[in-house]
Design a protein around this nucleic acid. Structure first.
Lengths: 196, 196
DNA sequence: TGTAAAAGAAACTAATTGGTATTTTTTATG
DNA sequence: CATAAAAAATACCAATTAGTTTCTTTTACA
């Protein structure tokens, strides 16, 4: 029972790729089968239905990837403001899992699925919650060590920074160019500087 | 030939409502016909196809509405930083055309359509371009009148602010609550303050 | 190696999709 | 009022959708 796991993973990965590109609803099961060369029988052996596969993608692929891209960089032991800046720089310019023309997969799914699928929303909410809590705690630590002003509201800054990230990915998508990321990062840097 | 214009408008308005809620691809023509009680013959008399209707929605409905919500408030003759803050406050908390649970219609369409429809992208790009240019010029004026530091990069600030707006709407959507808008606005205020 | 269970193939539904062709009803105007 | 054009209704179509059913092939492992 090893090959089975391989086809399952193959399905998840290719399906994610398609969904990241075109959106969840625009990606049909037949699309996925055509690109994976997997038959319908195999697909429905592995997944009860399309939504179960979608949730598996989020839980088994997206979660770990986002953890290493969004969470781990914040845990580097450096100045919190540098950590946040470096995180964003890495996400926007260096991460080659995230493509400028397709935006942020978590943001895409949030926007598409939230109005009508509560299962997707709640797991996406968990992801952002986790990211948010970590960033807030990192900022709090900065206040304690004195590199950040005491009157800064950490949770507020977190929301502000995360919003900017999600938003600028939409601009990158619209412009289909990483060029917009440079001025964004410059302004982020001076904003973060204003918190000292 | 007056009733015809009325059914056309009715189609556009109801279709916009559905698309704003569920997305463009998830809104079928049959959906639109069911809610408007218009027949297919009438629909295809007014529009060549679905995409032509979609573009008509953007050009004839969305553009004017966004102009009055996003453009006009910036033209008020006040301190540029106040103008921007008040604009955002109005958009997030007072504008009753924009619904928290559905996000920003322009951002939604950008995210959904950009990867595969260039017609939609280019008209959406125009919209954001227009907004962006105005905000930048307002900031420049603030630099001239001395209420904003000379070393502030206006275009950079514009991108930063607009990104935050788009992003926070996604958070509001995910949380399905305007509650996130309050801390966002507080941080926006202190960020804008840091530009003086 | 034999065999039961896991995995996959193939052919199928029933519903929905965007769109068309044809006919009927309204409407403006000479 | 007559009538031609505009507007709307009706019935249809081929393609695609998610999902089922039935059957065959692999696979792990006793």
């Amino acid at each position: 029972m090893k090959k089975a796991a391989a086809t399952r993973l193959h399905l998840l990965q290719q399906a994610f790729e398609l969904i990241y590109r075109k959106g969840y609803q625009a990606t049909s099961i037949d699309d996925i089968l055509a690109t994976t060369k997997v038959t319908k029988g195999a697909f429905y052996y592995h997944f009860k239905n399309k939504d179960e596969m979608g949730l598996a993608i989020i839980n088994e692929l997206l979660k770990p990837i986002l953890a290493s891209s969004f969470i781990e960089p914040l845990q580097a032991n450096e100045n919190p403001l540098d950590a946040i800046y470096n995180l964003m720089h890495g996400l926007l310019l260096e991460n080659d899992f995230l493509k400028v023309e397709f935006g942020c997969p978590a943001a895409n799914l949030t926007q598409e699925m939230t109005p009508w699928n509560t299962d997707f929303s709640s797991v996406l909410n968990e992801l952002t919650q986790q990211w948010s809590e970590l960033m807030t705690s990192v900022l709090e630590k900065g206040k304690q060590t004195g590199v950040i002003r005491k009157d800064v509201n950490a949770a507020q800054v977190t929301l502000f920074v995360m919003s900017g990230y999600w938003g600028v990915r939409n601009f990158g998508k619209l412009a289909n160019s990483k060029a917009v990321y440079l001025p964004y990062l410059k302004e982020l840097k001076s904003y973060l500087q204003s918190l000292t």
